[in-house]
Design a protein around this nucleic acid. Structure first.
Lengths: 213, 213, 213, 213
DNA sequence: ACGTAAGCGAGACGGTACGTCAGGTCTTAGG
DNA sequence: CCTAAGACCTGACGTACCGTCTCGCTTACGT
């Protein structure tokens, strides 16, 4: 995608009654830049339109919600970004994947886009729906893959997976939303060891032995 | 303080050169109601001022940021709300405490206030700082108590506590921000069992023996 | 022409390299209906195209200006609508003709079309020219006929006619533009008696013999 | 009123909870200029706000409708503009007053404002109401004065006045809306002679004694 | 008989303006 | 010196139309 965004943007003209991919690209490029420059605060559809040399209605035609724009933006960045590791041990996979994800969040506008999406979801019902229905299921695929392998290896109980995924997501959100997605791999690893660890079950008072799985 | 908030609010006048506690109360009451009625979306300082029969500047004088208002509001609600259970087993304590917290979030404006604070923190550096410095440490005291007891009982390693707290916080945020703070105690318990469970450590390929701590 | 306009409109396709009269008819029918339904306010080319099942460019091809559309529309309605009365007395002719015209304006889209044309002329130089050059002269023919007969009868001076026509036009516009084209024939008659009456001339101070009471 | 309008407009600061007259003045000045520069076409609240260095909401607060803005604008110009002549003969008074009015329309933005008001009334019900209720009655006072004197002199029948006023208004609108408010006093005088002349009444077929030329 | 030229529905596009909403600042008047 | 009140600027929101443009189709006409 050419960086034809910020200056008034070379004149694009309509290509008729089908969507103009150049326009879409220009909008996304402008949104990307804006996110880098100003973060989620200071992000506005108005400004995106200005930079992209697009009309606001053209943006609203394709992204009826700011959230939709963030989703697309995030998707565009994520494409071909993070490999799902397969190191034979679930904690290692989780740690590496999480560390990669955080690096991605730190170095791309994606992190900002995601923060924006979550913030938006607090304000708009539509954004919340987008987050829950369109975004999360798709983005959690890698996690399911990693945990799925662990289940196949009999390292984890299949019934646990959703709970562990919820913990993983929460951990990541917490760090992202408090702007703490650093590169402390040790800290990540420690959290992952708990997420992937055995349950603390058994009779009260005795935290149990031979626990999980 | 009388609940004189929502209707045009009985006329308050200045009480001279000292802060008028009635005004502060009316503002908080109005904010409270608004949060209950419409949630964080649909919350605006403008509307609070309208309901409280106060001027916006009066609000901004005492709560320079929306986030400050949320902090006060959340604090006012939480006070004297949730007991820290002591059932002798960390999972049980966590489960009960979490369930209580979620009920609190569902039934008080507190949930909305907290969502608002987090959302605000994505936009404003000041709010983020407030969230991290003033808010979180204070609100996590109960958790430290619960985990502290477990450490004393030798059920958990002291070095783990911060990691487990982070997981617990993330889990709660995730649920809150996706509007999923239901009363499924089973689900809570399952998550808590993982949070309080042993680590998955040990040599690669061997998911651990004699695991946690 | 079938009244196939408002519902999505039976599919018309091109009839080759000549103008498709069905399309023109559908556009005019849709414009007609829209004007009846909503009046000039609420009239938009967009909506006409929607109702006619026509493309906007097809409309702009044949009516480069909204004003042109109104002109056509008004012309189409007026055709074969109002007879020029010949009652032997100019006031009676004027009164009857004016009353007929107002009824026509009330019951046809014509009134809306004319209001639209005048309004458009305030915005567009082209529309103003159309109004002055194409429209007015043609539409005033009946008036010239009526006054012409009066001149032949020696009831009026030929030199007066244009002035009286201007007064008549103004009176009608005033009523149309303030949405007051009612059916109060008495009021019309009174105005016509003045328009067709003798001039108030004579030396200053002496309003002239036999004059106004 | 200083011409402090077009450049971003020297920074005005609020004077507290009472309307800022500087703002009102700046808005009106900007509107005035815009009307002169571009006429009614090309007039937009947006542009007025831009030039006045005012926020759109500030404008809408005080002039809820574009029409209201035109009314104020017209009023501001008219103030101290046209004297009501008293020459002893109604035709002379009308002619002189009308000629003055047209000159005023030609040389001030007022003409544009009035055209805008009328055009607006075709589009918005509110504007139409403003035109009929607020504007016209007030602006026709001079006419009532002139005709009132004629009635007192027994030159005219009191019952005629409203009809003659309607004709006068229509004549003026016609000329204004077709951009024909020239300075042909002869033409004005001829029209006024008819407006102020005797009625053409009497038995059908006999246009009444002493009548038309 | 067939290529070309035009008309057509469709609808995306860049724009401009609309009227509204909220944020946060400022000033007044008064206690 | 604080307070209530609300005007103010700013800037974004999402919507409605404007008039232009291009597509891909269909048809009639001229060769």
């Amino acid at each position: 995608m050419p960086s034809n965004a910020t200056p008034p943007a070379r004149r694009r003209t309509s290509i008729g009654s089908r969507r103009n991919p150049e326009t879409a690209a220009a909008v996304l490029a402008a949104a990307r830049e804006l996110l880098i420059e100003k973060g989620y605060a200071g992000f506005s559809v108005e400004e995106v339109a200005r930079r992209a040399g697009a009309g606001k209605p053209s943006i609203y035609r394709w992204w009826p919600t700011k959230a939709d724009l963030f989703v697309t933006l995030y998707g565009a960045e994520k494409t071909a970004a993070i490999l799902v590791p397969d190191l034979g041990r679930v904690v290692d996979d989780l740690t590496r994947y999480t560390a990669s994800l955080w690096r991605f969040w730190r170095t791309n506008p994606a992190g900002g886009a995601f923060r924006g999406l979550i913030a938006e979801a607090q304000t708009s019902e539509a954004a919340l729906a987008a987050l829950r229905v369109k975004f999360l299921p798709e983005r959690l695929e890698p996690l399911r893959t990693i945990f799925g392998r662990a289940v196949e290896r009999n390292d984890l109980n299949a019934a646990d997976v959703e709970d562990r995924i919820a913990l993983w997501v929460g951990f990541n959100w917490f760090r992202l939303l408090t702007d703490h997605v650093d590169d402390d791999v040790q800290a990540i690893a420690r959290a992952m060891e708990i997420i992937a660890g055995p349950r603390a079950s058994g009779p009260p008072g005795r935290p149990r032995s031979g626990s999980a799985r």
